[in-house]
């Protein structure tokens, strides 16, 4: 693998398996190897878990649904920005019905015990796809939030222009648009510059 600043899209998916039980960890690693070409790392103890997972910067984390360390992984994967990792969880067959409901619930994918290659691959695919979807949703949410912020700034800038130049709201907006076009800038950026200048001038 070459050393680059940016992740190589053709590189293997990096998977961290959090599993204290050695036999079970080996079984999972074997199943992953048969399923495809993955860069697999096993973390076998709770101590230092967060640090090791963070350092590994995996694309996917496999962790037992019943693991008490799950909250740590969630914090790394979901709660703290930036969102970087999808999470897939596996669970014993005894947890009847949980796999279905969990997959329906959206975020986590669950592999049921007896981790054969055929079963692991679709779950990894599903988890990765789900992760992509959630990332898109986040991006859309962020875009909406930014649009709201920008509208507030534009409204303030319009208000300033209306007051300073005695023009109507539509004319104020037209002024902003013309300035943006002539300076080859976005309207929100021109509005922001105006608001900042007005704040400085008091």
């Amino acid at each position: 693998m070459g050393v680059t600043d940016h992740p190589d899209p053709s590189r293997d998916l990096k998977v961290v398996v959090v599993e204290p039980d050695r036999d079970r960890a080996l079984m999972i690693v074997d199943a992953l190897r048969t399923a495809g070409s993955y860069d697999v790392m096993v973390v076998d103890q709770a101590s230092g878990l967060a640090r090791r997972v963070a350092e590994a910067a995996p694309d996917l984390v496999l962790v037992d649904l019943r693991s008490p360390s799950r909250d740590m992984i969630e914090d790394l994967a979901l709660a703290s920005a930036p969102l970087q990792r999808p999470v897939a969880l596996f669970v014993d067959e005894s947890e009847d019905g949980l796999a279905e409901t969990a997959i329906e619930a959206g975020l986590s994918a669950y592999v049921v015990a007896g981790l054969t290659a055929e079963r692991i691959k679709p779950v990894l695919d599903a988890a990765t796809a789900r992760f992509g979807m959630i990332q898109r949703m986040r991006a859309e949410l962020e875009a909406t939030r930014r649009a709201l912020e920008e509208r507030k700034v534009i409204d303030r800038a319009k208000g300033l222009l209306m007051k300073a130049r005695g023009v109507s709201e539509d004319e104020a907006y037209a002024l902003l648009r013309r300035a943006a076009m002539s300076q080859n800038k976005r309207i929100p950026d021109v509005a922001q510059a105006l608001v900042t200048a007005a704040d400085l001038l008091g």
């Binding site: 019943r66 008490p68 360390s69 799950r70 909250d71 969630e74 949980l98 409901t101 329906e104």
Partner: peptide
């Protein structure tokens, strides 16, 4: 075993 597990148990 964890708050995330509890939350999933409740929401599901």
């Amino acid at each position: 075993p964890s708050w995330s597990a509890l939350r999933d148990t409740l929401t599901s």
